[in-house]
Design a protein around this nucleic acid. Sequence first.
DNA 1: GCCGATTTGTCCGTATGTATC
DNA 2: CGATACATACGGACAAATCGG
Lengths: 239, 239
Amino acid sequence: MKAIYGGIYRDLRDKVVSGDFPFQSLLPSEANLVREYGCSHNTLRKALGLLTDQGYVHPIQGKGVRVIYQPQDKALFSLGGIETFKETAERNHLKATTVVETFERIHADERVSAKTGFAKGTRLWHVERVRLLDGKALILDRNYFSIDLVPDLTEEDVARSAYEYIEGTLGMRIATSKRTVTVERTTKEDERLLDADDFDFLAVVSGQTFNGDGLMFEYTQSRHRPDYFTFHTTAIRGR
Amino acid sequence: MKAIYGGIYRDLRDKVVSGDFPFQSLLPSEANLVREYGCSHNTLRKALGLLTDQGYVHPIQGKGVRVIYQPQDKALFSLGGIETFKETAERNHLKATTVVETFERIHADERVSAKTGFAKGTRLWHVERVRLLDGKALILDRNYFSIDLVPDLTEEDVARSAYEYIEGTLGMRIATSKRTVTVERTTKEDERLLDADDFDFLAVVSGQTFNGDGLMFEYTQSRHRPDYFTFHTTAIRGR
DNA sequence: GCCGATTTGTCCGTATGTATC
DNA sequence: CGATACATACGGACAAATCGG
């Protein structure tokens, strides 16, 4: 991103994270920041809007912009944004392996359509993968990819990283995603595929992913052993 | 909110939700919408930005703004935004009751400080409440409120709705919140206070809430029986 | 493959409203 | 009440991506 507001956003964010602007303190005023960065009012406000959305600061009319970021916000195993399995593993210095259990073409029937949101009859790749961290089978990933949008997916691609293929080779940008977190009882198949130990419940993250054209290209369900699971998010009331 | 962009946002949102603008279709162009609403380019863009952030639409440069909302997105028991227990119960037509188990003043010691993010020594209200839906004890809420920011909290207030007191009587606006979702084993106390049945795991939502001045005034931990729990969120990559 | 029309994205300058102190 | 700070809105300009001829 070479946009001006993006640069200002990153600069301010770094100063917040580094403690340059401490927790609960006020940022310099918009007017001062405009002078400092030599940009327009609107551009600076766009950067501040990003900082607000990401949970770093909170603006108070007539008063200032308060820092609400704390160092402990750095999560060990965050899933709030859109992060791939590989990215997560690398960030936590864990050795990640993937085993492909299922890789097949299907057509969305009534049941699949209702679950995934794909129209009935859509041609889909159905993929099931077990994710191992340091040798332990902790996550079961079920995916449905639109064949129209992700035509030449191979078993090798999904074994490495489906997103790497989609974003890299295919050049498709991944954009918005919607996710739902629930807690579900371990099924027979979970027990068969995962090192469930005595965990009889799993954290389940499911949802849809949209590409740069706003078209839904993936439904995903990710079943996690509870002891390795955390989900982060920040919300803003109103807006 | 009497702002122009807010009205446009709500109007467009309603048309999306009602299916007036169907899933995966393109919105009228910005130029057309500007004409229709008789507002400026920037104002309309602000409304579109809100729709994007809330997961209703996705803009594609040079092409249009695509609708990515589906009716099934209406969640039964959503917790993605900042919603109070009462609001949630009412939306689902459930009879909600609250039992106050603990209501006391404490000072944040090392342990509490590390857990909540309040500075050590901060004076806090410590509140524990059991939430019943249709007579079943399903949720255990633990809260720490800053006494400095919420001075005259009473046991009656928390029995009804702490937020109603804070927002209503105190006139304090609730703004940003950060939440973390984990899955934890049921403790002895959980079993004592909740109708846990044979659920030996709970969905746990914890986090901090900031008021309109950007000051942290609450740490909350909410322990839910899995069968009554869903957490929603939408994320945008980059930005 | 290029060009022009369309559409969204970024940026600027300015003016006015509203809340805080 | 005035000064300060954020919030909203307008209008204009150009950049970048998409699409069709």
